[in-house]
Amino acid sequence: MSSSKKEQSSEPPSLIPLLPEDIIIDILSRVRWCDYRTLPLVSKHFRSLVTSHELYARRSLLGCTERRLYVALSNRETTSHNPYILCLEANDNHRLVLIPWPTHVPHVGSFVTVGSKIYAFDMLNRYHHLPIPSIDRRFQTVHLVHCMNATMDVSVAGVIDWKIYVTGFTKIPWDTSAKMVMAVFNTETQIWESATETMIGRPYGCVVMAAFVSPMAEDNISDEAINLMAGKMYTRDARNSFVYDPKEGKWETDKRLNMFKWEGGCVVDDVLYYYDIRGGKVLRAYDPRKSSWVVVKGLERLVADGRFSESYYTGSCDGKLVLFFSKDRMIKGIRSAQISLERRHHQGRSEILG
């Protein structure tokens, strides 16, 4: 026998497969979710365990749940879109990890999260006659819900009180007689409730202010003020910004919000943030309680890094704002920043620092 074979035979076999299954599940439940993509390569048994209900029940019991930020990236050369997750490495660096995505689920479109499920609405709604897929993030399984009760293109969606509000075109975008329609899906009953026409044009973004008061708020906010801001959907078209109140069932314009053509925004602690790529390349914030815009300070270096970018995206994860932008005009790389936010008073004015 050669020396190399002796060395291989002297290596102790892995003991994990010899353990009882409940102990294996207990061990795997402590592994970071980002590493689960490699576990199925170990064996077929591991592949089945990674998607098992027992594993995720154990993770929840141990408090090993993680907040995950999903990112869909497009390749201009291949026109393909692939989903990634932003993962934190052991050296505190972040990287985007390609993840498996269920078949027949759109890779680009409007995605909303309700509980443990992601509902996917195709950007062009090419499959409006087909059921809408929802992905259970815990097990990467797909459940189909009833097809939408309206045909629309370029749809955007938001969630208020476990209901998904989807808006989009009923006709081709360049037709001046085209109408916007809003469809409402109740995630608890799994039924489409209504489809009504709206007053807005092509939606360029959609964010929702929830019934939540930030612990970093600098003053006491009355219940009346909370009710005024809570559970409303904000969107804009090419000209105006609008606010939708589901209790009233109607859209209204918002002149203060309309001061800037915000796009690709997100909400953190009931404040709207967006990266103004046209007006000075700054991070702007809109507080609906005070109907005021401010520039987030403390990000001068970050803004300098992104001065040559022509594309960007903002998102929220675990109470922080995440900003993605291209490294240059050729989009040869992507940079990301995770931003902690702090609200302060300075000389009688409110400031937000990042």
Rank of each mutant, 00 (worst) to 15 (best):
A90G: 03
H94I: 07
R30A: 09
N91K: 05
L86M: 11
L88P: 00
L73Y: 04
L88W: 02
S48E: 13
C87N: 09
D92H: 12
Y70N: 01
L69A: 06
V31W: 03
D35P: 02
R32F: 05
T65G: 12
S80Q: 08
T51E: 12
H81G: 01
E54T: 14
T65I: 04
R58V: 08
T65Q: 15
V50A: 08
N82W: 04
R37A: 12
S29M: 01
V42H: 02
L86Q: 01
N91V: 06
I27N: 09
R59D: 10
L86C: 05
C87S: 15
A72I: 01
R59A: 06
R37L: 14
R59G: 06
A72M: 08
N75E: 04
W33V: 14
D35A: 06
Y56I: 03
N75P: 02
S80F: 06
E77R: 15
R68C: 12
E77A: 13
L39F: 09
L28Y: 05
T51I: 14
G63S: 06
R59K: 11
E77N: 12
H53A: 11
S52G: 09
S60I: 09
R58A: 11
T78D: 09
R68W: 12
T79D: 12
H53G: 00
E89G: 14
L69E: 05
Y84H: 13
I85C: 07
K44Q: 12
T79M: 11
P83H: 10
R47I: 00
L69S: 08
C64V: 00
A90N: 11
D35H: 14
L55F: 03
S48R: 13
S43R: 04
Y70P: 02
W33A: 13
A72W: 05
T78V: 06
Y70C: 04
V31F: 07
W33M: 08
S43T: 01
S43P: 02
C87Y: 00
L69Q: 10
S43Q: 04
L69D: 03
E89S: 15
T51S: 13
R37I: 15
T65N: 10
R30C: 12
R68Q: 12
T51P: 02
S52V: 02
S29P: 01
S29H: 03
